Amino acid sequence: MPRRFLQRYMPRPDTLKRQRSLRFMAPLIADPGLWLLTRRTVANAFSVGLFCAMLPIPFQMVVAALGARLTRCNLALSVGLVWITNPLTMPLIYYGNYRVGTWLMGSPVREAPSRISTRWIAEQMHDIVPPLFLGSLVVAIVLAVVANVAIRLIWRWHISQNWKRRRQKRRQRRARLESQFDDCE
């Protein structure tokens, strides 16, 4: 079941409460509703986490934690998924978001010079920021919706597979019992 798989890798709330750096979040961590693993809470956590990961803003984890609180979804998943945009993947993801934004706005893509400097970035910021934010917002919304639907479908498929396996085991067990009963006669 997906729940067992996720529980294996999730941190425990009591472990997080004991950490000094997270004591200010103790009321948030203590809420048992934010640690549930149901189809709804996991799907919504994927939506919140991936949405926040695509936004080019600082403190994405804090925003994801607040989003988890507002949507009553799994806190650990929503905060952990923000790390999809890490220092290695961030340039590629944000450049892709920028390209989506320029495509939506119909504006030309700014080509980077052979040597990027902070001066060049500062001069180009007024041209780069609007398409970056628009592209990031569109990609974030699309990714959040797709992830939510996909997680719900995967969860449902997994449950139906478990039901089929159980039904098959019951039939096999019944067939064995019937054959044993027939042998006794």
Rank of each mutant, 00 (worst) to 15 (best):
A53C: 10
A53W: 00
M54N: 14
L55M: 15
P56L: 06
P56V: 09
I57G: 06
I57P: 03
P58L: 12
F59E: 12
M61Q: 10
V62Y: 08
V62M: 13
V63K: 01
V63F: 04
V63N: 01
A64K: 00
A65K: 01
A65V: 05
A65W: 00
G67D: 02
G67V: 03
A68T: 04
A68S: 14
R69M: 11
R69L: 13
L70Y: 03
L70S: 11
T71E: 07
R72V: 11
R72K: 15
A76G: 08
A76N: 02
A76L: 01
L77Q: 01
S78I: 04
S78G: 11
V79Q: 00
G80E: 00
G80M: 07
V82I: 07
V82E: 00
I84D: 01
I84A: 05
T85A: 13
T85I: 04
T85C: 06
T85P: 03
N86E: 12
N86P: 11
N86G: 11
N86D: 12
N86W: 07
P87K: 01
L88T: 14
T89E: 05
T89R: 01
T89C: 05
T89S: 15
P91D: 07
P91C: 03
L92P: 10
L92N: 10
L92H: 12
L92Q: 11
L92I: 15
I93K: 08
I93N: 10
I93L: 15
Y94D: 08
Y94M: 15
G96H: 03
G96K: 02
G96A: 13
N97I: 06
N97E: 10
Y98C: 12
R99I: 13
R99C: 14
R99V: 15
R99N: 12
R99A: 15
G101L: 05
T102E: 09
W103A: 15
L104R: 01
L104F: 05
M105K: 00
G106I: 05
P108T: 10
P108V: 06
V109Y: 09
V109N: 02
V109D: 09
V109T: 10
R110G: 06
R110C: 09
E111F: 09
A112H: 02
P113I: 04
P113K: 01
S114P: 10
S114Q: 14
S114T: 13
R115Y: 13
R115C: 08
R115E: 15
I116E: 10
I116K: 03
I116D: 07
S117A: 08
T118I: 12
T118K: 06
T118A: 14
R119K: 13
W120F: 13
W120C: 13
W120T: 06
A122C: 06
A122G: 12
A122I: 08
E123K: 07
Q124F: 10
Q124Y: 09
Q124G: 08
M125E: 11
M125Q: 14
H126D: 14
H126N: 11
P130A: 08
P131H: 08
P131D: 08
P131N: 09
L132F: 11
L132M: 13
L132I: 06
L132T: 05
F133W: 15
L134C: 11
G135N: 06
G135R: 01
G135A: 10
G135P: 09
L137G: 14
V138Y: 04
V139L: 13
A140E: 05
A140H: 02
A140D: 07
A140G: 07
I141Q: 01
V142R: 04
V142E: 07
